[in-house]
């Protein structure tokens, strides 16, 4: 197997409802193609695994070909294939992993299975260059809410500092949005409504002062529901914008407070924020404010690279290939609960 100095890495991501394909060469993003089945899930209020898996099968090869077309490249130009091997929806992961193996086998190039969360961190290197070692990463999406200590993306395993003990932050957004009669996914409509509201309702900050780096959003979601039900029961109008703003404030408050605390605890001066919830305006603003106050450099990729995508997988694959990391075997399993 050839490994050129600046290998072209094809990255494939299918852990949830986005079929993502990226092409990266030497830290440079050459193409990023995405097919999403989110509209098919909207009426169910969440991602339906079988619908997601079917959509991945349909979109997989066309999305790879779209990425290659956009970069003006041919499959034979690919020097290595990287793929999210977990964690995520089992049936969805399996489609991407099988496709990645087929490309690697057909092209005679190495296969690299990568961790979804590590890829979310790695994507930032495409925009902001190499990460200082170590860095802390806050990853928040519909499936994850994690604080990670990242020593070296290519070589050493990422260490989990904490994670949600129940709902992911994005999941809480979806549930609160449904309660307020807003569409799925709930992040964008709540963010929009919150801009018109005042965050004066004192919703709880679970685990805020517990000394851990874990999160809990299930109780917050229930507290919002109780508050709204009380108004409805009393026949009072529900101040939707204020509820959205207050809920959003509670989420952003506890996420950023713990992220800054994690940086301090580990003497780290760089925080990377990623995942779909990193597109949230209040989370971004509060993170910027608190990082500046604490003397921490904040790095957030552009929103298109925060949500699931193939570029992040190609980015991490590229780091691993260039560092000479041993490739994965062709019997690489797709692991829905892959550990860090």
């Amino acid at each position: 197997m050839r490994t050129p100095a600046r290998p072209l890495v094809l990255g494939i991501e299918t852990s949830c409802d986005e079929t993502g394909v990226g092409l990266v060469r030497g830290g440079e993003l050459l193409a990023d193609a995405l097919a999403s089945s989110v509209d098919e899930h909207a009426r169910y209020g969440g991602v339906v695994p079988e619908i997601a898996a079917r959509a991945h099968l349909e979109a997989m090869v066309p999305t790879i070909e779209l990425a290659l077309d956009r970069a003006g490249l041919h499959p034979r130009d690919v020097d290595a294939v990287a793929v999210t091997s977990g964690p995520g929806l089992a049936g969805a992961l399996l489609v991407g992993v099988a496709a990645a193996k087929a490309y690697a086998l057909a092209l005679g190039v190495p296969l690299h299975g990568v961790h979804h969360l590590a890829a979310h961190v790695a994507v930032d290197t495409l925009e902001h260059g190499p990460l200082p070692r170590p860095a802390v990463a806050l990853l928040v999406s519909g499936g994850h809410s994690s604080l990670l200590l990242v020593p070296d993306l290519a070589a050493e395993p990422v260490e989990s500092l904490g994670a949600t003990v129940d709902d992911a932050a994005g999941e809480a957004y979806d549930k609160v949005a449904r309660l307020l009669g807003m569409p799925f996914p709930g992040g964008p409509p709540i963010d929009a409504a919150a801009r018109e509201g005042s965050p004066h309702i004192p919703f709880p900050r679970a685990k805020a002062g517990d000394g851990t780096f874990d999160f809990s959003f299930s109780g917050l979601k229930t507290a919002v529901a109780r508050w709204v039900e009380a108004r409805r029961r009393a026949g009072e109008p529900v101040p939707v914008a204020d509820v959205a703003a207050s809920f959003q404030e509670a989420v952003a408050d506890v996420l950023t407070a713990k992220a800054v605390a994690a940086c301090r605890a580990h003497g780290v001066d760089t925080l990377v924020v990623g995942g779909g919830v990193a597109a949230n305006s209040r989370l971004r603003a509060l993170a910027a404010l608190r990082c500046e106050a604490a003397g921490i450099t904040l790095r957030i990729p552009r929103p298109g690279l925060c949500t699931d995508n193939g570029a992040m997988v190609a980015a991490l694959g590229s780091l691993r290939v260039e560092a000479g990391v041993e490739p994965s075997p062709l019997d690489l399993p797709a692991s829905s609960t892959l550990a860090l």
Partner: peptide
């Protein structure tokens, strides 16, 4: 069964596409 069926379908499609 859907899951195993998809493994074969996507593998065949991807292998063919890689080779043109």
């Amino acid at each position: 069964p859907f899951t195993s069926l998809r493994v074969g379908m996507v593998t065949g499609a991807a292998f063919a596409a890689a080779l043109g």
